[in-house]
Amino acid sequence: MVQAAPQTATRAFSGIDADAVAILQRLQAGGFQGYLVGGCVRDELLGHPPKDFDIATNARADQVQELFPECRLLPGRGSVLVHVHRGGKVFDVATLRPLRTPAGTPLLAPDADLVAVARTVEVGTVAQDAESRDFSVNALYYDVAAGQVLDFVGGLADARERVLRSLGEPTLRFRDDPSLVYRAVRIAARRALTIEPRTLEALREGVAALPTCPFPLRAHELLESLDGGAAAPCLRRFRELGVLEATMPPLMMLLERLGPPAWNGLLAFAEAMDRLHGRGRKLGPAARLACVLLPLVRQAPRPPGTPGETASAAGAMLPMLAGLDQGAALPLLKHGVALLEAQQALLAGPGALAAGTVRSSPLFAEALAVLEVTIEATNGPRELLEGWSTRSAAEGRVA
């Protein structure tokens, strides 16, 4: 329920990006409102360093463009998105919405006249925009000039109690956009939040609707959840809720067939990814996919006489996924399997015959990152990784 007047909290935020502040100041100098919104406000309140600084304003996209000639207009779902480029960074600047945009709303056509569309967009109030967002802790607005947090939906209390609560009618929200399942689990895991009971019940219903989401979206959301240092808690909750079966059914069937050793191996790899993230090592989506597949490949039976850890089982992954509506995800799947297959050459060591081929591959750095996760997860020989790193440094390669 939207409050008639916002609750406020006076807070001095220390981690605000100076370029984000400069954008807000230019908006206000132009006669418009401007607020930080979403994850950056949530994370400041929860004691985490904010990263992405999204901005909400009552300026339309065409008006933002007049103030920021360096910005880029992009087609959104019935509206126009704005990316403002400043200081080598990109900031999302969005017009306040009067109503929630349904997930099924199509994107504007690529050849649409975005300036003309922007001029017709209805501008909402801060209270209306807050109600249109997904979770209460993501619907908090920070007025930098006043040093105040504005809260129309009870997000301040939820942040204090470390609760994740869906806005609106939770069942309808998850039915409209089942991909909220991944986002809810991801936010709760990364920020140690408890999912509010009604939201959790609606989330369970959203899992049943996940197969209606395009596979590329499901794959993207799953792999995004394995980033950020909370891969292991996300996987545990995904398994509990049945998200893995709804995301990649063939992989989950294989996981169940291989039994506890495969699941324990997958968790060990996830925990290793989390430890590497804590040390500042970031894996790309394809490398994260390879780290999901590799524990299954290690447990999968291999034909008699087939050498190597990954063997032909890695190449068998793509046919196994052939029944999925892969679409735009197919390059990602092929990339992940290629990283998987490179592990056999890496495990042979930098002095092996195949070393030259893997070192010359454009995937070498990512393949080496997967090897690092493998060694971390299995307590493998770090000398092998050090040998590859030394050899790469001597040849001027970045490992």
Rank of each mutant, 00 (worst) to 15 (best):
E122I: 14
G124T: 09
G124L: 08
A127L: 02
Q128F: 04
D129R: 00
D129C: 09
S132L: 04
S132F: 00
R133E: 02
F135N: 02
V137G: 01
N138S: 07
Y141D: 01
Y142V: 07
A145H: 14
A146F: 09
G147C: 06
G147H: 05
G147K: 05
Q148L: 13
V149P: 09
L150P: 03
L150K: 03
D151N: 08
V153F: 04
G155S: 03
G155F: 00
L156Y: 05
A157R: 05
A159S: 12
A159E: 05
R162K: 12
L164I: 00
L167H: 02
L167F: 00
G168L: 00
E169L: 09
L172K: 05
L172T: 11
R173N: 00
F174Y: 15
F174G: 00
F174P: 04
D177C: 13
D177L: 13
S179C: 12
L180T: 09
L180Y: 12
A184T: 15
A189C: 12
A189H: 02
R190K: 15
A192E: 14
A192M: 12
L193F: 00
P197W: 06
P197I: 06
R198N: 11
L200C: 10
E201Y: 10
E201G: 12
E205G: 13
G206Q: 01
A209S: 09
A209M: 08
P211D: 09
T212E: 13
L217M: 12
R218K: 12
R218L: 11
A219H: 13
A219S: 15
A219E: 14
H220I: 06
E221I: 03
L222W: 14
E224F: 10
S225A: 15
S225V: 05
D227L: 05
A231I: 02
P233T: 00
L235C: 07
R236E: 15
R236I: 09
F238Y: 15
R239M: 13
E240H: 12
L244T: 09
L244N: 08
E245C: 07
A246G: 04
A246T: 04
M248K: 03
L254N: 15
L254W: 15
L254P: 12
L255N: 10
R257N: 12
G259D: 03
P260T: 01
A262V: 05
N264W: 10
